[in-house]
Design a protein around this nucleic acid. Sequence first.
DNA 1: CTAAAATCGGGACACCCGTACCACTTTCAC
DNA 2: GTGAAAGTGGTACGGGTGTCCCGATTTTAG
Lengths: 205, 205
Amino acid sequence: MNPHQDPHPDPHPGPPPHPPPGHPHTTPTQARGRRRRTTLLTAAVDLLTEGGFAAVTHRAVAQRAHLPLAATTYYFTSRDQLLAEAFAQLIETELTTTRTWITHHGLTAITDQVATADRTRQLGLWELYVHAGRDPVLQTIARRWTDGCVRIIADTLHLPPTDPRARLLYTTISTLWLEHLVEQRPLDEARTLLHLALENTLPPT
Amino acid sequence: MNPHQDPHPDPHPGPPPHPPPGHPHTTPTQARGRRRRTTLLTAAVDLLTEGGFAAVTHRAVAQRAHLPLAATTYYFTSRDQLLAEAFAQLIETELTTTRTWITHHGLTAITDQVATADRTRQLGLWELYVHAGRDPVLQTIARRWTDGCVRIIADTLHLPPTDPRARLLYTTISTLWLEHLVEQRPLDEARTLLHLALENTLPPT
DNA sequence: CTAAAATCGGGACACCCGTACCACTTTCAC
DNA sequence: GTGAAAGTGGTACGGGTGTCCCGATTTTAG
């Protein structure tokens, strides 16, 4: 990932009056800059969902955003940071999307939501999720993802957020989802198993 | 993945007397060659489990196997084929390992097996599993993996291989495993949930 | 023993990558 | 207005990658 490692040891330490000469690497102060930054970010998210993980390169992102190559290094310290922010944004939108879907269609319709949504998009999501196991920064984002999903299930079933039954149901849904995505197993099996899981964990009152 | 695409359109079709001049790309006829091929394969598996997915490059594999770079392209048509075979082998060994573990220690001890085993190794496994969603060849191997795991659970619980309860239990175990791997959640929670799942799906007789 | 087939391995090609450089323009505080 | 700060973008560098070429070597068939 890092061809060179710290080619500028900065022989004269001390509080830099500013980051190098230029390079905000955070939220820019000017309006256009902020717009550009978010443009780059959404371009990164799109690439992530299309070609997965390896498709998010500086050049590809810049081209997708119709910005020069140097813009990516200007607004983001490194590819890793870009990836992390893209991951976080992807997860937030995904969480709100599924939450509204479930409140409208009910929990058991989650199988249809999975079937409907963009397959490669979800593959990119899981790809990055697994990759998070090797990167502490991404790891916290991954936890946010799992917690969010469990929370949605708990809310839908009117359970307390920490009820182990919600957690348990999520484990089943998660695997069914991932298997459908990766192995393209038929949806009927997933539906059947989901109903079975619901009966097991929430015996009919 | 493919810098060039088919630079040799082979203007004179017809059954090639042999693959190009050399290049078996399958099991070699000579003993030494067969040994070399498996050496490369295990080197690929090792790299896969250490650095994940992106670490399996021709050069890295060759160096690990103490063979020249050209050996990798000689015994495997492409990096993708190498990856596929490494994936298949990794899964077979993993399946037999967990099977013997479970028959010795019982199903609920699976959490300890997960805790014991090499973390990066399992991350590489899941990484490739998700990647299989984009590659039909890997997809069949991924199915073999899931089916094998379900089969192990069914056998352990003396259930018929297609019993949905075994399938359901696997979904829970799978997610708990993956979450422990990626998010490094505490093992206690996993143990508790596993017991809960067992009680739910197999009510005490 | 000999020729053909299989195998070997060093080097090269073409490409893509992340990042840094640096002259240039725009924006903004005073 | 004016100078500093922020932003901009073409370009270059050093490195890694998959794959191929092709002469040299080994194995094997006849």
